[in-house]
């Protein structure tokens, strides 16, 4: 006889509250993250103190606004794509492409803000559509194609800021003219409104049904007249538009110039958007909350960088939290039982 731990699926009416399980997962994830801080120069105490400072003082919450703006813009579009079963990780490249195009129009051509932001969104649409076309017509895996395009876009940016757009011999451009910039609060409001608009489109138009049905079963969706190609293309384009717009807004509201990026770190917010989307369970409006949370975690990690904690600590913490929350929510469907098995 041996004892074996088994997970038995609960009946739908007996399932645990996923929100409570998710919060428990979040708490455990934060504890594990603090323990991970023991490997950094800040130590467990320093890490815990940085998190307490950021989460415990509501006055600091607004400081996460720049990160929230960038993360939420990419997360909402990714959530829509993931609902359709289109596993892209191209938001990072789309954001950077949006920044490049917006800078070109605003800083070099002298176009107006609206034109610059529209072009940034369009750049994201084109990149999103390219990945979707590769997937739909050439069967290229979208996860790999989108990731590799991210690296390509970062290379283009580095070429531009190190060459033709370089200012004063540095790997950065000249700042945007002051009348081509926006306040962070305005940028965040635009993102908030856009995300809510996409949520409304998902809930109240054919888009939502199409995206969900394609994601659940392509065959069934097509049987009922939902076009697979059209849906994937729409989800990829909307996701790209949001990420591109996010990049444009981040440029005009936060960075206000282009600087070189390394392929490893890149800008980072497009990658954080992936985690925010999964953390929100791919619920578009909920990505606003998850992006805020990840923005706060990122804020805490930037304060830790003074203690020589690498920036990547933020990524690790965010990933740990996603793993714990997603696992805990999944666990709400099961009951843990001990089973006696004969040899």
């Amino acid at each position: 006889m041996k004892l074996r731990v088994k997970l038995v699926e609960r009946a739908p009416t007996e399932r645990g509250n996923p929100l409570l399980y998710g919060l428990a997962g979040l708490a455990v994830g934060i504890v594990v993250s603090v323990l991970l801080g023991g490997l950094t120069p800040a130590g467990v105490g320093g890490t815990a103190s940085a998190l307490m400072t950021v989460f415990g003082e509501p006055s600091r919450w607004l400081s996460a606004l720049p990160y929230f703006t960038a993360i939420a813009a990419s997360a909402a579009g990714l959530a829509l794509a993931y609902r359709a079963g289109f596993i892209t990780i191209g938001a990072e490249g789309q954001m950077v492409a949006g920044m490049i195009v917006a800078y070109w129009l605003l800083g070099r051509v002298g176009a107006g803000l609206a034109a610059g932001l529209f072009a940034a969104a369009l750049a994201g649409v084109l990149l999103g559509a390219l990945v979707a076309a590769l997937r739909l017509y050439l069967l290229v895996n979208e996860t790999l194609a989108s990731l590799m395009l991210n690296y390509v876009v970062v290379s283009v940016l580095n070429y531009l800021v190190g060459g033709p757009w370089s200012a004063g011999g540095f790997t950065r451009t000249a700042p945007l003219p002051p009348d081509r910039t926006l306040g962070v609060a305005t940028a965040a409001t635009i993102v908030l409104a856009t995300v809510l608009l996409v949520e409304a489109a998902y809930r109240f138009t054919r888009l939502g049904v199409a995206v969900d049905s394609v994601g659940l079963s392509r065959r069934a969706a097509e049987t009922y007249g939902v076009g697979f190609h059209k849906t994937i293309m729409a989800a990829a384009a909307i996701g790209g538009a949001l990420a591109g717009l996010g990049g444009g807004l981040y440029l005009v509201a936060v960075q206000q110039q282009l600087t070189s990026l390394n392929t490893f770190q890149s800008l980072g917010y497009g990658y954080m958007g992936i985690l925010a989307a999964w953390l929100a369970g791919n619920v578009i409006a909920a990505t606003l909350a998850s992006s805020w949370l990840l923005g706060l975690l990122y804020l805490a990690s930037t304060s830790l960088q003074i203690s020589r904690v690498p920036w990547s600590f933020a990524l690790a913490v965010q990933a740990i939290i996603v793993v714990f929350v997603v696992s805990a929510v999944t666990l709400s469907r099961y009951r843990i039982v001990l089973v006696r098995e004969s040899q």
């Binding site: 950094t40 490893f264 999964w278 690790a316 965010q318 990933a319 996603v322 793993v323 696992s327 999944t330």
Partner: peptide, 24 residues
């Protein structure tokens, strides 16, 4: 064991691995 989506976990492990890798 838990049946979590493999894409979610895989992508999370990318960030976890690269983040902890830099710390180490």
């Amino acid at each position: 064991v838990l049946g979590v989506n493999q894409a979610v976990i895989g992508l999370s492990l990318v960030f976890l691995g690269s983040g902890v890798g830099v710390i180490l």
